[in-house]
Design a protein around this nucleic acid. Structure first.
Lengths: 348, 348
DNA sequence: TCTAGCACTCAGTATACTAGAGTGCTAAAC
DNA sequence: GTTTAGCACTCTAGTATACTGAGTGCTAGA
C-alpha cells in the first residue's frame, strides 16, 4: 500500500512533466508541475520525487539549474503504463474517415489522403505503408499487347491492390492469344500468395508441360518480370515539413537533414515498420528503438490496417521523441480503423 | 571598342564572383577575385569594377565591410550572357542514361531513377514532372471486372503512360461484356487526345446512340470517372535533403521549413513548371521568378523530355539561388536527353 | 587607366557581468 | 514519516564592452 501509493504519485508526476514538456518543448521545473498537479503539493516535495525519477532514469537535467526533461526510458514507461488512450467511438472514427472517401477513387488515392489527413491532424509527419501485391493473393491477371513488342501486364490482388507495368517482350502475342493466356494464368494462379508465386513460376518455367505450351511459358516469364520489379513495400510520407518546423529541429538544423536522409533511404524504416505491423497491434517506437540512422531523435506510432484478409498495411505518425503520444495514438488507431472500414467494405 | 572592352571585363569579374560565391557560400572580396582572375589585376581595380556592378544591381554587399554577393539580377545576367554550358556529347549522355535502364522496367521506374540520379549528381533536390495520360493520346482501353461491383479500368496512352484504377460500378458487366466494350471503346477513341476525351465523353453520354447501347454508355461513364481522378501532372521530388543541408538553409532553418511547404503544396510549382516546359527549351528560374511561396530562396533549372510525340514531361534541379547553374544546366539537359532516348526508342 | 597606401567600417568573437530560473539541502512543521 | 519553508548555490541566457580583422572606398601618384 505504501509502496503503491508512492508509485502512483511518481507516475502522476512523470506524466505531468512529460505533458508539460510536450507542450512547451523546454525543461520543466518543479513549480510548474506543482501548479499542474491536481493534488496540492509544494515544489519542494515534487523536487524530491523528481530526484527519484532521475535516479530511476526516467528524467534528466540538461544542466544543474534547469528543469527536467524526460528520457527515452521515461517516455517508454509513460506510453506503456501511464497514458490512457481515449478510444474513439465508431462514430468519431467514421467522421475521421469521411474526408478520405471524398470522390472515392482508388485505394491508392484513399491511402494518400489518409496520410495527408493524419499529417494535418497531428501536425507531424505521417506515413502510410501501402499494401503491395507481394503480400497478397492473386485474384486476377491481365495481359494486353500495347504496341509491337510491348505488353501491359496487370496483376490484381486481393484488396484491389494492383501492380501494372508495361514491359518489353521478345515474341509478340496478339490480342486474343494474350487474352487467352491471361485467362488461363488467372485460373491457374488465383488464390496463390504472390510471394510464393515467384518461386512457383520458376518451377513451372522449368517444368515445360503446360497446356498452352510456349505462349504460357512466355506469359509466366512476363509475370515473373513484373513481380520482380515490384517493391516489397511502399512508404508514403506526408508532412515532413511539420517535423522540420518543430523546435528541436529548428535549433539543430543538421537533425532536419538527418531526418530527411533517413526518410529518403526508405529501406531500413520500411523493414522496421513491417516487423512492427506483423504484430497486428498499435506499436510505439521511441528514439533509438527505431534503429534507423537519422531518426534517433524521433518516435513513431504505427497501426496496421487490413484490406481484405490479413494485415497488409499500416498508417502512422512520426515526430520528435517529444510528441503527444496520447493524442497521436488515438489518431493513428482511429485512422487505421477508418482506412480498414473504407477499403474492406466492398469485400467478402 | 572601349565600351565593349570594359563590358567584357565586367562580365569576367561578375562570373568570377558568382563562381567563387557558389563554391564557398560566403561573400567574395576583391582579393579573392584578383587571385582567381586570369588577367592580372590588382584588388583595387577590381573594387572599382565591383562598385559598377553594384550600381547596375548585379552585386550587393551584406554590410559595408563584407565582400560582395550576387543579386538575383546578377545571376540572371550570368545565366543568360556569361556562362557557357558545356554541351555533352551523345556518348556522355548515353553514359548518364545507362544506370536508368538498369533492369529496365516501367517508364515510371525509369523516371524515378532519373530523379534520384539527378539529385545525387547535382547534390541538390531533383524533380521530375511525370507525363500523365491527360496530356497524351489514347492508345488502348481495357476493362476488367474484379469482384462483384468493382472494375479495373486501364487507359494506356502514347508513350506507355498508364492510368489504372479500380473503381466501383453499379451494374456489373461480366468478363466478356467488359472485354467487348473495352475493345469497342479502344477502337472508337484511339488517337484522341485524352484531354479532349473528357468533353467528348460528356457529349456521347448525352447522345445515347451508341452501337453497344447501355453497356457502352456505362463504360464511358467509367472512363470519365477514371480520367477525372487522374491528376493534371505529377511531381516527383528527390533529394530535398541535399538542399536542406546547404548552408543557407542550415543557417536559417525556417527557410528549410518553407521550402518543404512549398514542395508539398505541389500545385503552384507544377503550374509554373508546366508553363516553362511548354516553351520546349531548357529554362532557368531564379529566386522570386519562381513565384511559388516558400521557394523565394531557390532557383530551378528544368528541361523538357519527350515520350513519343509531343513534349510531355520534364526533369530538373532545384537548389538555393546560389547554385552551380553551369554544371547543373549541363546535367539537366543531358538527363532530359537521356530520358527522351530511353523512353522514345520503342516508339514509331 | 591602373595601383599602392591608408583610414574607415562593421560583423564576429571574446570577456565580463548580471539576472533569474531552478536546484539541493536542512531544519522545522504537520 | 511526510511535507514544506527557507536559503545558499549553480548555471544559462542576456547584455554591455572592447577588440580583431576582413574588406571597403578614396586619394594621390605611377
Amino acid at each position: 500500500m505504501n509502496v503503491t501509493n508512492s508509485e502512483i504519485r511518481r507516475n502522476e508526476i512523470l506524466g505531468a512533466v512529460i505533458e508539460a514538456y510536450v507542450a512547451a518543448a523546454s525543461p520543466v521545473g518543479s513549480a510548474l508541475v506543482a501548479r499542474k498537479l491536481r493534488e496540492a503539493l509544494s515544489p519542494a516535495t515534487i523536487r524530491h520525487i523528481m530526484v527519484e525519477l532521475e535516479t530511476i532514469g526516467y528524467l534528466e537535467q540538461p544542466h544543474t539549474s534547469a528543469g527536467r526533461v524526460p528520457t527515452a526510458q521515461g517516455y517508454r514507461w509513460y506510453v506503456d503504463r501511464i497514458m490512457e488512450v481515449p478510444r474513439l467511438s465508431s462514430e468519431q472514427v467514421r467522421a475521421l474517415g469521411a474526408p478520405l472517401a471524398h470522390g472515392e477513387g482508388d485505394s491508392a488515392q484513399v491511402l494518400a489522403r489518409a496520410g495527408q489527413a493524419l499529417a494535418d491532424l497531428s501536425q507531424e509527419a505521417a506515413f502510410v505503408v501501402a499494401p503491395t501485391v507481394k503480400q497478397s493473393r492473386v485474384r486476377h491477371i491481365e495481359l494486353v499487347p500495347v504496341g509491337v513488342h510491348k505488353m501491359l501486364c496487370v496483376v490484381v490482388a486481393e484488396g484491389d491492390v494492383v501492380a501494372s507495368h508495361v514491359i518489353e517482350v521478345e515474341e509478340p502475342l496478339d490480342r486474343d492469344e494474350a487474352s487467352a493466356v491471361a485467362r488461363a494464368a488467372s485460373a491457374e494462379l488465383a488464390g496463390l500468395p504472390v510471394a510464393e508465386l515467384l518461386g512457383a513460376l520458376e518451377q513451372r518455367l522449368l517444368g515445360e508441360q503446360d497446356v498452352l505450351g510456349e505462349a504460357m511459358k512466355q506469359a509466366l516469364a512476363i509475370l515473373q518480370n513484373v513481380l520482380a520489379g515490384e517493391p516489397a513495400g511502399r512508404l508514403l510520407v506526408e508532412g515532413a515539413r511539420y517535423v522540420v518546423g518543430q523546435p528541436e529541429f529548428q535549433r539543430q538544423p543538421q537533425r532536419a537533414e538527418a531526418l530527411l536522409e533517413g526518410l529518403d533511404a526508405e529501406g531500413p524504416l520500411l523493414e522496421r515498420l513491417h516487423a512492427d505491423l506483423g504484430t497486428g497491434a498499435v506499436r510505439v517506437r521511441i528514439g533509438q528503438e527505431i534503429g534507423v540512422p537519422g531518426l534517433e531523435a524521433c518516435s513513431y506510432i504505427v497501426a496496421p490496417f487490413a484490406v481484405g484478409r490479413g494485415v497488409v498495411g499500416g498508417v502512422g505518425v512520426l515526430g520528435p521523441t517529444r510528441m503527444d503520444y496520447r493524442r497521436h495514438s488515438a489518431l493513428v488507431q482511429a485512422m487505421a480503423r477508418a482506412v480498414t472500414e473504407l477499403l474492406t467494405d466492398g469485400e467478402g
